[in-house]
Design a protein around this nucleic acid. Structure first.
Length: 181
DNA sequence: TGAGTGATTGACT
DNA sequence: GTCAATCACTCAT
């Protein structure tokens, strides 16, 4: 499965975090693909200490620190050595709303998980989970019967290279939970 | 060794 | 709409 296909397939999956004794969960409703030979991808200029998990194997979390303030969560998608991943941009909150609101310092459900930095803050995700296998606690991925329906493909957000590629995907029915509405 | 940029967010005008 | 927060990395001295 190609990375854009994986991006589509993670929409609707449930991300569960059990960090600091607090269980939080949300449904993935927005994701972006980052490929090898993609100038917008951290992997395009080779392996570094920060991006090493991005080069596989698939199923790992790639968690990086950006703008001096924020953590961002990715899922590694491609075989070892390729350097491809899916950036998780927004979730619909399902469980642990109170814990997420406390970590975020604001209560509005639509402001808990509607952005990559917000997800990590609300769910307690930081660099200690870089390279973590998503099959294991405290950060796991579940599939349930939810159907995404029609999926919108748009240019990715916050980049200056390859801005024409429509690799930001979200279910049309989940638009209220998506970042930068 | 140092300036510039960045897969962001929130406060402010 | 503007801008600061302030870290990892790239690229140019």
């Amino acid at each position: 499965m190609s990375t854009p296909e994986v991006t589509r397939s993670v929409l609707g999956m449930v991300l569960v975090s059990d960090i600091g004794g607090e269980r939080t969960a949300g449904r993935i409703v927005e994701a972006e693909a980052y490929l090898k030979d993609d100038p917008a991808s951290h992997s395009s200029r080779g392996i570094t200490k920060r991006n090493a998990p991005m080069f596989g194997p698939p199923g790992l979390a790639y968690v990086y620190f950006t703008y001096g303030n924020h953590w961002c969560l990715n899922f590694v998608t491609a075989p070892k050595g390729h350097g491809e991943a899916v950036l998780i941009r927004a979730l619909e909150p399902l469980e642990g709303l109170d814990a997420m609101a406390r970590r975020r310092g604001r209560a509005a459900p639509r402001d808990l998980l509607s952005g990559p930095g917000k997800i990590c803050q609300a769910m307690g995700i930081d660099g200690s989970l870089n390279g973590h296998p998503l099959a294991l606690p405290p950060l796991t991925l579940l599939r349930d019967r939810w159907e995404p329906g029609e999926i919108a493909a748009r240019p990715r957000i916050g980049i200056s290279q390859s801005v024409d590629k429509p690799w930001r995907l979200y279910p049309v029915r989940s638009r209220e939970w998506v970042s930068r509405r």
